[in-house]
Design a protein around this nucleic acid. Sequence first.
DNA 1: ACCTGAACACCGTTCAAGT
DNA 2: ACCTGAACACCGTTCAAGT
Lengths: 255, 255
Amino acid sequence: MVTQTRQSQRRRQVLSRERIVEAAVELLDTEGEGALTVRALSERLSTGSGAIYHHVGNMGELLQAATGTVVAGALPPLRAPAGSPQTPESTGSPEDAIRAVALGLFDAAAEHPWLAAQLAAQLTRSPWGAVTPRIFESIGRQVRALDVPRRDWFATTSTLVHYILGATAQNAQTPDRTGDGALPGSADERSEFLDAASRAWRDLDPDDYPFLHEIADQMREHEDREQFLAGIGLILTGITAGRPSGPPGDHHGAG
Amino acid sequence: MVTQTRQSQRRRQVLSRERIVEAAVELLDTEGEGALTVRALSERLSTGSGAIYHHVGNMGELLQAATGTVVAGALPPLRAPAGSPQTPESTGSPEDAIRAVALGLFDAAAEHPWLAAQLAAQLTRSPWGAVTPRIFESIGRQVRALDVPRRDWFATTSTLVHYILGATAQNAQTPDRTGDGALPGSADERSEFLDAASRAWRDLDPDDYPFLHEIADQMREHEDREQFLAGIGLILTGITAGRPSGPPGDHHGAG
DNA sequence: ACCTGAACACCGTTCAAGT
DNA sequence: ACCTGAACACCGTTCAAGT
């Protein structure tokens, strides 16, 4: 029996910050980055533009909140869920946990094409806002678990975070919509993009850009995720190679 | 024939793409990111807004050009200057050359506070536009010189570039102008910023953010450049540790 | 060809007025 | 307290009209 609907969902739920942020994410996902305007948002929520400002302050705060919720959903929970003694990522090796966190962000950026630009913007505009600490904490815990000397915790974690955000920002990209062929976000579109980029490298003056000419093919054929993980692996190798008590005969960094 | 028209600098030079880009950089440097508008630009150039569009297409292209010129000035020349057989950076070790390129960008971002955001935006919006290839070439040449196996050239270079851009984006930042005390860009301002960020970390719930609580002090006291270089060092260690040949003496990249 | 500058179609944000 | 929506002060971009 459906007649017992107390909250009349038919008309309109009460406006709330949560509902606004949720609608913003939907708008960004479905209509793209440029479609998030106060007007579009208030129309979708069947309210006036001014109503938005009763809950969110301004546009930048809204974007930050939208980014924050998506990022939070892409990372492991900060606390162990009630009942389980450990957080999920603490069961495997720290290396694997770092890879999992990194891939979580990477995949989220692939799913939400606007996310990469927002992560980058947040990095520069208000680095210590809401999302950077979240990422920093998730990575840092694993760095600590890697036997990195305490004095290197911040530098090591920063290196990983900077790489992850930089790589995520670049990889989740497709060309400026020209309305060509493939579906947005499809593998086809990505491969068209890489094709075009590879051609662009080959069109550069070979005297100025000899290296780009040499790796234009490699660039076209690379797998995004695989290469992203290769970068993580490189940094992890650097971290463990530099640790104090390693395998016999190993050297340690003399900072 | 036109008889020696000496450019009368008093009145107004002919409008050109170059002059517009130059004026844009000045505007960004002196008035900040939000001050670059077509109207402000055309006023500074004593021309009409429409004139701008005869030379630059649109705002995004202008920002890209501005970023491009600053980046080009911050990196070593692509070709050796006439007369010298080598590019300057090829005299030392590849590691040092990589550090020099990275620091060039890092310092440019410190000098031009708007640059970091633009680099990040360019990374995401049109990754293969004008500036990314430039950086890629400069780093990639040195990667090749490091005896990295050919098949890893692209992945290795990408890792370095992503880290450099991510770290540059974050480090060159100061808080959202609150008109507080210190001079913009000064060491004082940076230290005020780190102070505030450190406090923000300490204000987070310690049950959710135990790691951030542990390194809040380290974060406040870190030196930007030093830490940036530590990250480069970590990656370089990962690169050289992963190289194929073990025996000291001769190792050449195999096919 | 190059430039002018009013006009257009948007923005984010505010605020008196409503409930 | 919460919401409305017209109004304000901006944007980027266009384009008939000038030189």
